[in-house]
Structures are given as C-alpha cells and as structure tokens.
Computed example of a mutant assay.
Amino acid sequence: MNEDKRLISAADMMLRAANIQTGKGDEITSVWKNVVSKIHSYRDESENNTKRISIGERLAGNTRVVDLKNGILFIETDHSGWIQYLKMYQKFILNGIKMALPEIKVNSLAFRIAGSQAKLSDIYDSEVEKQRNALEKEIERQENQLKKFNKTADEKNNGKTSTLPPEILAKFESINESIKESMLTNLKNK
C-alpha cells in the first residue's frame, strides 16, 4: 500500500494549524521524535536481523504529539502495544525532553490510541486533583500557623486585639465605614 505523502488526516491538519500560531508545536514534535528514536531495547536488536529497525525508531514512527497542557504531554499512538513501550521508557523520554527544551515544562505523559474515544484528560484531571489537594493542605497548614501566631500575639497583649494607638484605630474605622457605605451604594445602583 503506497500512501500519498501529501494526504494528511484532519487531526494532523488541525494540529499543524495550531502549531503555526504557537511556534512551539513543531519544536516539541521534533524533540519528541528525536528523543524517542534514541530508545534502544535491553538486548541487541540487530543480532538476528541487520535490517531490523530499532524500537525507538518504530516508536517515533507510530506516535505523535497531540497537545501539551499544564505540564502533561499528550501522545497518540496507533496500537496499545506502543503505549506499553512508552510507559516503560517514560523516565528516559521525560529527561530527554527536559534536557532538549528546558524552557518548556513537561512533567508527565498521557497516551491514547488513535481513532479511539478514550479521553486524554483522565490523567490531566487526576494531576489537577493532586495539585488541588496539595494546595488545600498548604493553605490549611498556613491557616494553622496564623492561628498560632494570633493566639501568641493575643497572649502577649493580655487579650487586647490591637496594639495600635486609639487615633489610628479611629482613622481605620472611619475609612472602613466609608468603604462599606460606598460598596452598599454601588450595589443599590446596579
């Protein structure tokens, strides 16, 4: 079967159009192909057949970059077997991409089979959830620190809530009242 090299899929057309605007798409794609083609299996693949193509070159030929979102590089392949190889060499690929493109943040890879309705966003959603949980824990930790600080500050001030002079407190209260009044007025006018 001899395919015309000028014919491309609609998905490839859309990807190329998006890459023209970003300028980084072609660079990421070429780095992907370069890094993946350097993969060699643990055994010498050429011992039985000198014309055999290395696993890396076969992976590069059967995969393509689809998207990059929040540090996750989305890859599409034409068979689930290639995904298994990509998962085995994931650390190698990530390190190669980070070395070649240090200005682009790539933390993980997500895979899908071409033409399938599989969602690439499953890994993206789980990564967002992990980051959200980490942020919530950090916020809780900081709130606890603030409570401890406020408690020790209150104890040092003998239960007084502020150490500011009364004149300054009066100014803040008048400013606070004018802001509240302004906000209420603006809300009524809407």
Results as ranks from 00 to 15, higher is better:
74 F>C: 06
77 T>P: 00
98 K>G: 03
101 L>Y: 07
53 I>K: 06
36 V>A: 13
91 K>I: 07
26 D>A: 14
45 E>N: 02
44 D>L: 01
118 A>K: 10
100 A>P: 00
63 T>L: 05
34 N>G: 06
132 R>V: 12
33 K>N: 14
113 I>A: 04
42 Y>Q: 12
75 I>H: 00
80 S>A: 12
39 I>C: 10
36 V>K: 09
98 K>D: 07
103 E>C: 04
54 S>R: 04
109 L>Y: 09
104 I>N: 08
37 S>H: 01
69 K>E: 12
115 G>Y: 01
86 L>W: 00
57 E>Q: 13
107 N>I: 07
138 E>C: 00
138 E>A: 07
95 N>P: 05
65 V>Y: 01
40 H>S: 13
91 K>C: 06
48 N>M: 11
60 A>I: 02
18 A>E: 14
35 V>S: 03
111 F>H: 05
40 H>K: 13
77 T>R: 00
114 A>T: 08
36 V>T: 12
55 I>W: 05
100 A>K: 03
125 D>V: 05
25 G>E: 14
65 V>A: 11
104 I>Y: 08
29 T>F: 15
116 S>Q: 12
58 R>W: 06
28 I>F: 03
123 I>N: 03
132 R>F: 08
101 L>M: 13
31 V>C: 15
130 K>S: 09
98 K>T: 07
76 E>M: 03
90 Q>H: 09
112 R>Y: 00
35 V>H: 07
115 G>H: 03
124 Y>F: 08
107 N>V: 09
57 E>H: 14
74 F>V: 01
61 G>A: 11
59 L>G: 00
46 S>F: 13
30 S>K: 15
43 R>F: 02
116 S>L: 06
47 E>K: 13
105 K>N: 12
16 R>C: 14
103 E>I: 06
110 A>W: 04
43 R>Q: 11
102 P>W: 06
73 L>M: 07
101 L>I: 12
20 I>V: 15
80 S>V: 08
58 R>E: 07
66 V>I: 08
86 L>C: 04
68 L>K: 00
98 K>R: 14
108 S>Y: 11
67 D>T: 03
118 A>I: 02
77 T>W: 03
27 E>L: 15
21 Q>D: 09
103 E>N: 14
138 E>W: 00
83 I>H: 02
28 I>G: 03
71 G>H: 10
22 T>M: 10
113 I>R: 09
102 P>Q: 02
35 V>I: 12
35 V>K: 01
67 D>N: 11
132 R>P: 00
97 I>S: 09
65 V>F: 07
22 T>G: 08
91 K>V: 07
62 N>F: 08
16 R>I: 14
25 G>Y: 11
16 R>D: 15
137 K>L: 09
89 Y>M: 04
16 R>E: 15
40 H>Y: 14
127 E>M: 10
112 R>C: 07
74 F>N: 03
82 W>K: 01
133 N>D: 11
81 G>Q: 04
110 A>T: 13
29 T>P: 09
105 K>F: 10
35 V>G: 04
126 S>P: 00
123 I>L: 10
65 V>Q: 04
64 R>N: 02
117 Q>E: 02
118 A>H: 06
125 D>K: 05
56 G>T: 11
33 K>R: 15
74 F>M: 12
33 K>D: 15
93 I>N: 09
